[in-house]
């Protein structure tokens, strides 16, 4: 999620403040990619990282790194799109002021990202939600190897397949608890509901 945010948030800010030739196309693409089927992403990453693929020499297939790459590709469009909506509204509010202050593009982006941080937290959490529940892509590129690339979701899928419903359900509860804890912790740290509206 952190890596995805590092890519998606500056991208969203850039799309909000900068007018360039393919801006609308980029925004439309990002919106469309929000619904990217994870299994297809997994397949494409698999092809790229497999021994005969262009990045096969890196030996990343069936490693946690491959899983992170797939997850980032899946959640960047989601975070960027949701963040862009918030930043676009804020930019409409700030536009005249920042233009009159001769603020550079980078400073505009920094200002928007800072002042919209609470809304961006929601975007990040949406990405986290999608990432933590993901199975298809990481199963393909990670291989679900015990003690290496097996995560809660892939373990649940495996145990369900084996008929171990009790264990699968228990892991499911752990996953839900984990998701809730992270969400609550981030809301608490971000003080999202403490000071009412800005």
């Amino acid at each position: 999620m952190v890596i995805a945010c590092l890519i998606a948030l500056p991208l969203a800010a850039l799309l909000a403040v900068r007018r360039f030739r393919f801006r609308r196309t980029t925004i439309a693409m990002l919106n469309a990619l929000m619904g990217l089927p994870p299994v297809v992403v997994g397949l494409i990453v698999y092809i790229f990282l497999s021994r005969s693929g262009p990045f096969g020499a890196l030996g990343l297939l069936f490693t946690p790194t491959a899983m992170i790459i797939a997850q980032v590709i899946i959640i960047v469009p989601l975070i960027a799109s949701v963040a862009h909506q918030s930043l676009r509204e804020l930019w409409a509010e700030y536009h005249d002021l920042l233009i009159s202050m001769n603020v550079s593009q980078l400073q505009k982006m920094q200002t928007l990202l800072w002042d919209a941080r609470r809304a961006l937290l929601t975007a990040a959490l949406a990405g986290f939600g999608r990432g933590i529940g993901e199975v298809g892509a990481i199963m393909i590129v990670g291989g679900n190897i015990d003690n290496a690339t097996r995560v809660l979701t892939t373990a649940i899928a495996l145990e369900t397949g084996k008929g171990e419903f009790a264990l699968a359900l228990a892991l499911g509860f752990v996953l839900i608890a984990l998701a809730l804890t992270v969400n609550l912790a981030i809301h608490w740290i971000g003080q999202t509901e403490r000071d009412s509206r800005w």
Binding site: L90, E93, S100
Partner: peptide
């Protein structure tokens, strides 16, 4: 500097 008719304040 420029001051607008509708004051623009940063969310700070």
């Amino acid at each position: 500097s420029f001051v607008f008719q509708q004051p623009v304040v940063l969310r700070r």
